[in-house]
Amino acid sequence: MELVAYAAFFLTIAMTYAIISLGLNVQWGQTGLFNVGIAGFVGLGAYVSAALTTPDAVERIGGFELPIAVGWLAALVAGGVLALGVGLLTLRMRSDYLAITTFGIAVALQLVFQNAESLTGGAFGMAFIPRPFAGLQGQAFAFNMVNLVLTAAVVGAVYLLLEHLLRSPWGRALRAVREDEVAAQALGKNPVLLRLQAFALGGSIMALAGAVQAHFIGFIAPGNYLPMMTFQVWAMLIVGGSGNNRGAVLGAVLVWAIWALSGALISEIFPAGQQARAASLQIVVIGVMLCVILLWRPQGILPEVRSVSRHLGRRTKDK
């Protein structure tokens, strides 16, 4: 029973990562936009939602005790607005400027989480974030199960939305811009506008994931949103298969499993004094894995499925 409860807990966290990975798939997989600031977007969603829904606290501004759903919505909006700002600044330029700027956004937001104590609680973070189905907290099994169902439902909803968009004319235009910007432009598509929309949509989804995660765990601190997280999510999408929404979800579960298992293994094998040191090996493994996949199987486990307009008759073909 305890094991099942743990499995549910593990899967719930993996599902929150699946949401982030789906968001990244809109930006990278569909549109080819390289976001190195994922942790910043996720953190923003978590903090915005937490500030709106926590009970009043003397040491910081915020604490409006609004319903969780309002927090989620606010996170969606905040992530979208941030992504719009970054996009407006960089999407007209060479693609690596976006990478550098998003990297900077994550660093800057990390500083805000860390230092703007009156807003974010500083290094101690924010506690007492309301958890969905908090009434069940006494029963670990039931609590974890309903939360798993809720989080999986969010994943399902985001997945269906994205699948729908991917097959829509808008999704096809995105891929056209990714594959051949000049040709897409010649057909009357506005590449900058399309990229901007995709980047904002992806940013919203990432921030939503942050809010979902924060409410499930009930506590957030700046240390949760380090570049490490960005890197994990990238590994998830690349391993699973960028461009494929199912791949994004599969990769999230798989990489999170590798991560959790290797973490457990390290705490078994290494003495307590060496564990922090050995944990850095986990990162080495994931980093090497990312490079190896880029070299030998850039399409990931589940390659992108080509979709064409249904008016042409559906067919799948590989590149």
């Binding site: 080819g32 690596d96 040191r277 990312l290 490079c291």
Partner: peptide, 29 residues
């Protein structure tokens, strides 16, 4: 190798991002 394969610049950026994490953690180890 990525260059030789004609990979997009942004794929090489991503590989450099992965290699950077690995190199840094190796130092820490």
């Amino acid at each position: 190798r990525l260059r030789a394969r004609g990979a997009d610049a942004i794929i090489i950026v991503m590989a450099s991002f992965g290699a950077s994490m690995a190199l840094r953690s190796l130092l820490e180890f």
